[in-house]
Design a protein around this nucleic acid. Structure first.
Length: 886
RNA sequence: GGGAGCAUAGCUCAGUUGGUUUAGAGCAUCUGCCUUACAAGCAGAGGGUCGGGGGUUCGACUCCCUCUACUCCCACCA
């Protein structure tokens, strides 16, 4: 027999690389515009130097399922891959690499640094894309893009110029979130607030002696004593009786004895700390605002590295946290430290470097967001862009209505440099390149030379390039030139269809792509946004490197196969819900691969005898499976339409495992060594073919392998470009009657189990009513029944076990094996259950209001329930009486 | 502090505009099986009254109120 020669376990390592190369060689992933309807996805570009983690796995498996399915639905499917230059993350990696070689960023030029960075990118960039190939991702690799590709960068620069000319980009002093580690400002969204325990220090500020009586000091509370040298005032609430009369008086900053005023502002809470607040405009956003209101100076005592500068007068050059320790000691020694107490508060950390964020005043570039956010909100509110699940609409709305101007400059070198050039007089011009900048500059000063111009040192926020992604991967020249006619790729592929991404970047990225799409294409960038959940471990913790709780995806693929991992990722992950990942899910996926493999081993081993006629069992089974297959296809289509990917997969899983293997194949399977008839064989191969196609988007490798093994295929043929099977009209009635047949069989097997009768011992079955004789042969085979007789003919002295399916009665004679008391107990229990059920139905039906107000269909159903239950109770009672006679 | 979401079998989740048998699935569990496709398997079984309380309705897992638990987002009183 053939299956003896095929290993009993599926080995993915023998098929995966083989088929992936086959697909690549035949360019099946590649797409060019043609007459077909396009289906487009752009990948959320991973960090160029990143490695695959479980979040990527989930996200990209989903995209691949969608793309592969669209391709098999006859669409011209295009999945554009690429990577993101990720300025902060990449620059941080390069800086630390250089540091390990003894090179400080500050010691080399920008050009030298960038050279190192590009080298790094060439070496590590794209690893993640290679990993995606292991997963089976059917990306159009010929279209791979990088956000810092020359033409994409050009688009970014043109975009900046475009917005500048429109008057939407401006330069301004703002309190920004400074990352002293990354040496850059980061956006509010990149700051993560974490509860941190620190101390609250109570400090004495002595009133300067101006010959007035009263207190000689006030006490303030602060968490940041190292910033007292930057204090410009103390502030109390105007209604705070404790401090009446102090307004206008002066106090001395401890240690440096600098004189500052006491002011009043309603911002201060009287019930926190001492009700007296030190005002340090340079190092706290609220203080900054109070400073503006009271026209106070700003003294910045920290440098870029978070070290105290010469304005601090003392502790110059000390790092901020070291300075805190020292100054506390000094304050204590000088008697100004009243007390300290433990205090927990939310402290901002940099998402990228985990450094404590320092609020800092600096000159940055901003993009006005007011108009753009209104439009971006409108697209989502009007459902032109659908969020899946739509609960994110609320979150999205909230954010869009409270959006602040976007700080787009970053104090980094890795990225697109801001196209602004400063003139010797301090003025600046904005242009796409040096020469244009020079031309502009000469308008005001004709004698100016190129060498007089100095380009801004900052680069643009990475999101300022990734927000153009769906446009620039197709037409890098389009952004920046809204009036330019789109090239043919953009015209064909844009708007894209679905975007699959994480909810965390709904605002960073999704919203901004919508804004850019509106600005440059006057259209949406995608129709549906599928938001995945976060992949967590089974304890519910987010998977992260530092926790070490994230399995290596590539290792998982090695041990379970890519198909197994894909199934494991998707089997219970619904849009928007976090998935609690457990390796057992991947095991389930692997087991499923194996099940499919073994179904193939069975089928391939059959000997077809051309002259053999199809038997009744097989005829019914084929008819049934044909029906249930169509019904399933219809449901799967519906699931996909609603992005219920897990539901679709689960349905296919059960269709294959339960319906196809456990029922269909078991019914048609010839006895060991016996031949197979051609009709059933052909039908079975047809079913297998369709099942493989339905499975293919989820399990691309094993399906391709088996599709080729089951039938002779041409050299260029591939399941991935075959059409998905369509649902034919089917008969729900037939499916339902088959369900009853299954139920009869299960009941008989159950009797065997409870009476410890081996499946090898044939039994007799008596039937009354209901079931069509068409199914008798199937019951005989599947339940090992030697003979089926009508119940009327049963001899009264037969004892056995009986059961009901719907209202049909069944009886299995068991001779001595039966335990009358046990049978009676079973019957009584069922009667009791039915009586209770009937009572609840009757209660409903006797309620006049129910009969009057419920829809007729509902009432009819209740009547049917009633009569069914009554019939059953009646029959069971008779059975009981018969039993009692013995 | 403000806002949002979620709460259904041991676990992970469905339950589609309140009404087809007093709730479904997968996994896990238990029982019996090495039955020549598959022990990564086969056959069978048990298990929840839908977080607590109140309300609307002829009828609620499904709608409303409230409490509790958890999660997330936003803000952040030094």
């Amino acid at each position: 027999m053939v299956f003896m020669e095929i290993p009993a376990k599926y080995d993915p390592s023998l098929t995966e690389d083989k088929w992936y190369s086959f697909w690549l060689q035949n360019r099946y992933f590649h797409s060019e515009p043609d007459a077909r309807e396009p289906y487009t996805i752009v990948i959320p570009p991973p960090n160029v130097t990143g490695v695959l983690h479980m979040g990527h796995m989930l996200n990209n498996t989903l995209q691949d399922v969608l793309v592969r399915r669209a391709r098999m639905m006859g669409k011209n499917a295009c999945w554009v891959p690429g990577t993101d230059h990720a300025s902060i993350a990449t620059e941080a990696k390069v800086v630390s690499k250089l540091k390990s070689e003894g090179i400080e960023k500050s010691d080399i030029t920008r050009e030298e640094f960038l050279k190192h960075a590009w080298e790094w990118k060439e070496k590590h960039g794209g690893i993640i894309l290679e990993q995606l190939k292991k997963l089976g991702a059917s990306c159009d690799w010929e279209r791979t893009k990088f956000t810092m590709d020359p033409e994409l960068s050009k688009g970014v620069i043109n975009t900046f110029v475009h917005y500048y000319k429109k008057g939407l980009i401006y330069r301004g002093v703002r309190m920004v979130n400074w990352d002293p580690e990354g040496q850059t400002a980061v956006s509010d969204e990149e700051v993560i607030h974490k509860e941190t325990s620190s101390k609250l220090y109570y400090l004495r500020y002595y009133l300067s002696n101006e010959g007035k009586a009263g207190k000689d000091f006030v006490i303030i509370a602060t968490t940041r004593p190292e910033t007292i040298m930057a204090d410009v005032a103390l502030c109390v609430h105007p209604q705070d009786e404790r401090y009446f009369g102090l307004k206008g008086r002066k106090v001395l900053i401890p240690l440096i004895n600098k004189e500052i005023p006491i002011i009043e502002d309603e911002y201060v809470s009287m019930d926190f700390g001492t009700g007296c607040l030190k005002i340090t405009p340079a190092h706290d956003i609220n203080d900054y605002e109070i400073g503006i209101r009271h026209k106070l100076p700003v003294i910045d005592i920290l440098d870029n590295f978070g070290k105290l500068n010469e304005k601090a007068v003392i502790l110059i050059g000390e790092e901020r946290f070291a300075a805190r320790k020292k100054i506390v000691k000094m304050l204590s020694e000088s008697g100004c430290l009243e007390k300290e107490e433990l205090y927990t508060s939310q402290i901002g950390y940099s998402e990228r470097t985990n450094a404590v964020i320092e609020p800092r005043l600096s000159l940055q570039w901003f993009l006005k967001m007011e108009e753009a956010s209104k439009e971006a909100l409108n697209y989502v509110e009007s459902d032109k862009i659908k969020l899946i699940p739509d609960k994110y609409k609320n979150t999205y709305k909230h954010w869009m209505e409270n959006v602040r101007d976007w700080c787009i400059s970053r104090q980094l070198w890795w990225g697109q440099r801001i196209p602004a050039w400063y003139l010797p007089d301090g003025d600046f011009v904005v242009a796409s390149n040096e020469n244009e900048a020079l031309e502009l500059a000469r308008k005001s000063n004709p004698s100016i030379l190129l060498s007089d111009l100095k380009q801004d040192n900052d680069v643009l926020d990475t999101w300022f390039s990734s927000w153009l992604w769906p446009i620039s991967v197709f037409d890098p020249g389009k952004p920046g030139f809204p009036d330019k006619a789109p090239n043919s790729d953009l015209a064909y592929y844009y708007p894209t269809n679905d975007l699959v991404t994480a909810p965390e970047i709904l605002f960073f990225w999704v919203a901004r792509m919508i804004m850019a799409g509106h600005e440059f294409c006057n259209d949406i960038p995608f129709r549906n946004v599928y938001l995945t959940g976060i992949v967590r471990d089974k304890l519910g913790r987010k998977m992260s490197k530092s926790l070490g709780n994230s399995p290596d995806p590539i290792e998982l693929i090695k041990s379970y196969g890519a198909d197994g991992v894909r199934v494991g990722m998707l089997i219970c992950s619904n849009a928007g819900t976090d998935i609690l990942f457990d390796e057992s899910q991947v095991e389930q996926g692997r087991n499923f691969s194996n099940k499919i493999w073994n179904a193939y081993r069975l089928v391939i081993g059959w000997n077809v005898e051309e002259s053999l006629k199809q038997n009744e069992k097989s005829a019914s089974a084929v008819k049934w499976f044909d029906n249930i297959l169509s019904q399933s296809i219809e449901t799967i289509n519906d699931h996909f339409e609603k992005f219920r990917i897990s539901d679709a997969l689960m349905l296919i899983y059960k269709l294959f495992w339960d319906d196809f293997c456990a029922w269909y194949l078991e019914i048609i399977k010839p006895d060991s060594g016996a031949p197979m008839d051609p009709d059933t064989y052909k039908a079975t191969m047809g079913f297998f073919d369709k099942l493989l196609k339905i499975l293919h988007p989820f399990m691309p490798f094993i399906t391709e392998e088996l599709w080729h093994n089951l039938e002779e295929r041409g050299e260029k043929e591939s399941i991935m470009i075959a059409m998905q099977p369509a649902a034919k009209p089917y008969s729900p009635e037939y499916i339902k009657s088959f369900e009853q047949v299954k139920e009869v069989i299960v009941n008989i097997r159950n009797i065997r189990q409870s009476k410890a009768i081996s499946p090898k011992n044939p039994l007799e079955l008596y039937i009354k009513g209901g079931l069509s004789p068409e199914f008798y042969p199937i019951i005989k085979k599947m339940a090992n029944i030697s003979e089926i007789k009508l119940l009327e003919s049963r001899a009264d002295n037969n004892s056995g076990s009986s059961f009901m399916v719907d209202t049909a009665e069944f009886f299995v004679p068991l001779g001595d094996l039966v335990n009358t008391e046990e049978e009676l107990r079973k019957i009584d229990a069922e009667i009791e259950h039915l009586t209770g059920f009937l009572a609840s139905v009757n209660k409903k039906l006797s309620n006049e209001k129910f009969v009057a107000s419920a829809p007729k269909a509902v009432v009819d159903i209740e009547f049917k329930k009633k009569s069914d239950a009554e019939t059953k109770i009646d029959k069971l009672s008779k059975l009981k009486n018969e039993l009692l006679k013995h």
